[in-house]
Computed example of a mutant assay.
Amino acid sequence: AQSRVKRLAKLTPIETTIEASVSPFLLPSPARPLAPPLIRLENVEVGYGDDPAILRDLNLRLDVDDRIGLLGVNGAGKSTFAKMIAGALEVRSGEVSRSPRIEVGWFHQHQIEALDPEQTPLDIMREARPTDSDQSHRSRLAQFGIHFDKQGTKVEALSGGERARLLLNMVAMAAPHLLILDEPTNHLDIDSRRALLDALNSYEGAVILITHDRSLMELVADRLWLAADNQIVPFDGDMDDYARFVIERAKGGTSAPSQSAAKEKRSKGKKKKTK
């Protein structure tokens, strides 16, 4: 034992690695809540050009404090729905009622690809807020986690995580009443995902979340909607129920619940609680 102690004493101490702190996401809550509903859809159909409808018969309501998790396989129309709710895609038919003062922040993964590779974060901030001073731009970027040495770096030299962090913070910069996040964690590491979760749980506006990150979905969403069979309907279940639905669906067994069926199921649930 004494011999082992002497050998250990001669070893070079290994310094503990101190992890760099992760900057929080800034998702400011809207200053004034709007009267409900934020958005109401009645018999809405949406698609692209002369192609068949991507989504039809949409009858949904979004309120000021809703946290909606949008489920569905790739190609089911989730991103099309997000685009329509964000106001970037006109509906073919039906009625979309929006609160006249609603501000929407919309993040989608294609924004990262669409960034000008020759621009810098400072250039992007100057375009977004042309009346602010350079000192204000730099301060805000530092709060986003884009520190001084990266602020003048071209976008093409930034990592995917740095680009995602920049865009996520910028879409929320105006304190929107509704945040639409389409695959926000694709380029984020574990610590940044946790920081985003904390920010979302502190944010007091409405959220529509599209993600393959199950833990984020479970910890953020209060209600689930399902995109399937060219419709989006409330999904009365949790993520385990959805996993079973996908498996059964792949076997050719389970069809997506209709909006009338979902409404009927919720109505029965309310009657049981009343009894």
Score class of each variant (00 low, 15 high):
residue 67 R to H: 07
residue 268 K to G: 00
residue 117 P to A: 04
residue 176 P to V: 01
residue 223 R to I: 01
residue 220 V to W: 06
residue 86 A to E: 13
residue 16 T to D: 13
residue 61 R to L: 09
residue 22 V to W: 10
residue 96 V to P: 04
residue 274 T to Y: 04
residue 95 E to K: 15
residue 222 D to P: 00
residue 19 E to A: 15
residue 247 I to E: 13
residue 246 V to H: 01
residue 57 D to V: 09
residue 208 I to V: 15
residue 206 A to C: 02
residue 214 R to W: 05
residue 262 A to C: 09
residue 4 R to D: 15
residue 275 K to R: 13
residue 270 K to R: 15
residue 3 S to T: 11
residue 97 S to V: 14
residue 176 P to G: 03
residue 174 A to K: 08
residue 83 K to F: 00
residue 214 R to M: 06
residue 209 L to H: 07
residue 237 G to A: 10
residue 168 L to Q: 11
residue 227 A to H: 09
residue 252 G to H: 04
residue 269 G to C: 00
residue 202 S to C: 05
residue 64 V to D: 11
residue 37 P to L: 04
residue 217 M to C: 05
residue 264 E to K: 14
residue 128 A to Y: 13
residue 271 K to H: 13
residue 6 K to M: 14
residue 136 S to W: 07
residue 190 I to Y: 03
residue 53 A to K: 12
residue 225 W to Q: 06
residue 44 V to E: 10
residue 135 Q to T: 12
residue 107 F to W: 06
residue 190 I to H: 10
residue 210 I to T: 02
residue 140 R to P: 01
residue 7 R to D: 13
residue 273 K to M: 07
residue 209 L to N: 03
residue 125 M to Q: 14
residue 248 E to L: 10
residue 88 A to L: 15
residue 24 P to L: 12
residue 240 D to H: 08
residue 203 Y to K: 02
residue 123 D to W: 03
residue 103 E to M: 10
residue 272 K to C: 02
residue 104 V to T: 10
residue 264 E to G: 03
residue 15 E to P: 03
residue 195 A to L: 05
residue 170 M to S: 11
residue 201 N to I: 00
residue 236 D to Y: 05
residue 211 T to I: 08
residue 206 A to H: 02
residue 15 E to D: 15
residue 195 A to W: 08
residue 174 A to V: 01
residue 7 R to W: 09
residue 29 S to L: 03
residue 166 L to Y: 07
residue 47 G to W: 08
residue 1 A to R: 12
residue 216 L to K: 09
residue 260 S to F: 01
